[in-house]
Design a binder for these strands. Structure first.
Lengths: 117, 117
DNA sequence: CGGCATCCTTCTGGATACTG
DNA sequence: CAGTATCCAGAAGGATGCCG
């Protein structure tokens, strides 16, 4: 047991890191929203409502708020008439692009494997 | 609208891919379980119960079953006394290692940013 | 040891209607 | 347009006990 301490500590840190990440990204829609902002750049509320198929305005609103709190997404109210609101990734949010890309790529391969089988 | 068709189709495929991935990986514990198997290799049920802090045996059982159905995890019953069961990543499951590593790395940086601030 | 069954509580999230 | 408010069903998930 003694000789495993460094190893166990290592795992402790890892599981904590995973947990931290999932705290921010968990939720049925967050990744999809981020993927849309990643792909489209600036995006309005109603655009996102279309991008992320199946999401309700309530959930979109809530998830965007979560993402904003975690500084992954920036919200800008435009002085148009009627009002429009623009969402985009923050610089910090953009650090998730690699992850999103990998999730995307894996999804492509997974679909090939499942459907193409 | 016409000139955007290829672009829209592209997005359709992307959002579908993301959705496919999240279908398999969503759930409060799946990533943590996979991370443990990724880090430790072969792992028994009770080991995982310790690795993934906070998980109940019921949820661990359920999540492992999901992962097994999706061919990400292999379950082996060992003929010991009393019985022990060993879980490990399948070859397919190992294709998720890159994603897990990135989630882990991001978690480290995120914690630095949040705590170290 | 590795689960499954049961009960019960909390959270998620959909539908609808309403507001500035 | 971009939300909020309310209501409600179902899923997630914890605690406990039982079983081979």
């Amino acid at each position: 047991m003694e000789d495993n301490n460094s190893c166990n500590n290592d795992w402790e840190k890892r599981i904590m890191a995973i947990h931290d990440t999932m705290d921010v990204l968990s939720g049925k829609w967050k990744i999809s929203i981020l993927a849309s902002l990643c792909y489209h750049g600036k995006r309005r509320f109603s655009d996102l409502l279309n991008d992320v198929k199946g999401i309700s305005n309530k959930m979109l609103s809530k998830e965007l708020k979560d993402l904003e709190i975690n500084r992954l997404v920036k919200r800008t109210v435009l002085d148009t008439h009627p009002i429009t609101v623009q969402y985009e990734l923050t610089e910090y949010g953009k650090t998730l692009r690699t992850i999103i890309k990998h999730l995307l790529d894996w999804g492509f391969e997974h679909r090939k494997k499942i459907i193409g089988k």
